[in-house]
Design a protein around this nucleic acid. Structure first.
Lengths: 330, 330
DNA sequence: CTGAAAGCGCTTACAG
DNA sequence: CTGAAAGCGCTTACAG
């Protein structure tokens, strides 16, 4: 900009106005304007957005903190967030927390230091400290997929309990009586809500909740641990006739197991899963699926954030959205 | 920082030195150092990295431009790039170009304006202009997955021709004689290389290349268009006994079709695919797969970039890496 | 119609 | 041992 000003014998101020499209408003002579625009084009001037951000106090970048970008669900979320953010001229910096709350805290601090305007977080655990600080500082952020009811934050989540209840209810409707539930990450409230939904459906149908039909998979080694869990259930309750998977990657691994052991999943065993993967339709056409409304989650998260950014200062009331799943009965 | 300086009656300079860990080198008295550190901690001081970047001229952010983050392969690449970048203290801003070179150009310009230190790009088409400008400006970037041999740029790609040749050769080895090839995005050089590999394998085996066994799927509507393509082939050459898919999502949709029409893909029809998806192992255990070495692509891309950033100024010779696929014969 | 000047929050060469 | 000052590249209130 300085170069332009020097080359053209005008002030940086003038250049700045013109380049910002405020030339007319500031009544800068057309000839000067044209001169500047032409020269800027000639030298292929690109504004330094870093400097602009420092001056204006907003970077037009949002931060996305998720367990891993290399996960069907979160990659899709990232895409939808990106699309929506672009409408408001924001771009996205993402970080994978790897379900480690230490890391998560570090990443959040880093993103704040880089002065992203707001954060969209799928929190792994209660990073109490970081979230409290952000609430205190009124730093704009919205939680997705997971949340903490005791904290007054924005969030956009699935109606976990009801989605689960409906899925399991469907299995019950098929006459199944020994329905297992397979979960993971049980420190997460959402996982407990899913389990609640399962229990609910059973008790509404007058079926007992059998402890041996509960399987908990270690997240960090789920590919192998789920085998142990499944074998356990088949050994304890050989007459098991249904499985409800609390999340998609558990179902994926279970399907791998079922195929390998040629277990009949069209008649003998009914399946249900919270969220989906592109192959489920082929692998298990009869599986009942409650799909996360990915697009809406992404859109709402961005809108809530942008809304809060635009009404900076004026206290906005926190948005708490609980969305229904897209039900896909097999 | 200013606040700290005022509160403690020292200069910003001193605060800056201490916070940068240069206190000892600058021989600042221990008592001052401790005072500053303690106060910084107390007020939870977080440096404004925007300001630092503006001063230092590097933002410690890399830009990743890919067709879509919502794609198995690129999401995985993103993850590996992130992991590797973190080792060098870089974070990542990503943008999905949606295979639109207009968009791609815009995104590249935007990222440069935001002063990312370097770019990792899976280019969609020859955005001649943007790439030329970057070469001209010596802006650090590395191409992945796709490249342009006529341009002197860094790149990390798969050995497309050889991987394809080996896959098809495998099908040939099974005694198959009517092997179809299904491709898409044929404006991309890499797709042509894959086709070359296919042709090569056939001619090495003395088999004819039959035009009717060539299927080209429209990228933008591949889910439906592939059906047309497959039906065409089955109609023209009913005795087709093999399919080579030039990329994973084509295989995925084809499998959907094969399952729906109960086509025998264990004996009658042999399959091969460049790159994989988590379900292929279950859906088509006999499919031959050449997996992209995702981790190595990500790692090398980052290392090349960081290396160029660190040797800023001194002319580095461009890295041109052609990696072998990880072969997985079904 | 146009420009000089201050400020955003840092770093660092220079001076004492 | 410590600080005043310049500079990174922008924006904008103020003055003429």
């Amino acid at each position: 900009m300085k170069d332009i000003a020097n080359a053209l014998n005008v002030s940086k101020t003038t250049v700045s106005w013109v380049l910002a499209g405020q030339g007319d408003r500031r009544k800068i002579s057309l000839s000067t304007q044209e001169k500047i625009l032409a020269y800027a084009k000639k030298v292929n001037y690109q504004p330094n957005l870093l400097a602009r951000s420092l001056t204006n106090g907003s970077s037009y970048t949002l931060g996305l903190v998720i367990p891993s970008i290399n996960d069907e669900f979160y990659a899709h979320i990232a895409r939808e967030v990106e699309v929506e953010a672009e409408k408001y001229n924001y771009s996205l910096t993402f970080c994978s927390s790897e379900a480690d709350s230490e890391r998560e805290s570090k990443l959040i601090r880093m993103l704040k230091s880089k002065r992203v305007d707001g954060l969209i977080i799928a929190p792994t655990k209660h990073s109490r400290e970081e979230l409290d600080i952000m609430i205190e500082e009124k730093y704009p952020f919205v939680l997705i997929d997971r949340y903490f009811p005791e904290l007054d934050t924005n969030y956009v989540i699935l109606d976990n309990k009801e989605s689960s209840r409906r899925l399991v209810d469907r299995l019950v409707g098929e006459g199944r009586k020994k329905i297992a539930i397979i979960t993971s990450d049980t420190h997460l409230l959402v996982m407990n809500l899913r389990r609640d939904g399962y229990r609910r459906a059973l008790s509404e149908a007058g079926l007992p909740v059998i402890p041996a039909l509960y399987g908990e998979v270690k997240r960090s080694e789920y590919e192998t641990d789920i085998i142990r869990v499944l074998e356990n259930i088949f050994r304890e309750i050989p007459e098991v006739d249904g499985f409800y998977f609390a999340t998609h990657y558990l179902a994926m691994e279970a399907l791998r197991y079922f195929y390998r052991h040629e277990i009949d999943i069209t008649e003998k065993i009914g399946l249900a899963c919270l969220h989906t993967m592109p192959s489920f339709e082929i692998l298990a056409p009869k599986m009942h699926i409650a799909e996360q409304p990915v697009r809406e989650i992404g859109q709402q998260a961005v809108r809530i954030l942008v809304n809060e950014l635009e009404s900076a200062g004026s206290e906005t009331v926190k948005a708490k959205m609980v969305l229904p799943a897209v039900m896909n009965f097999g």
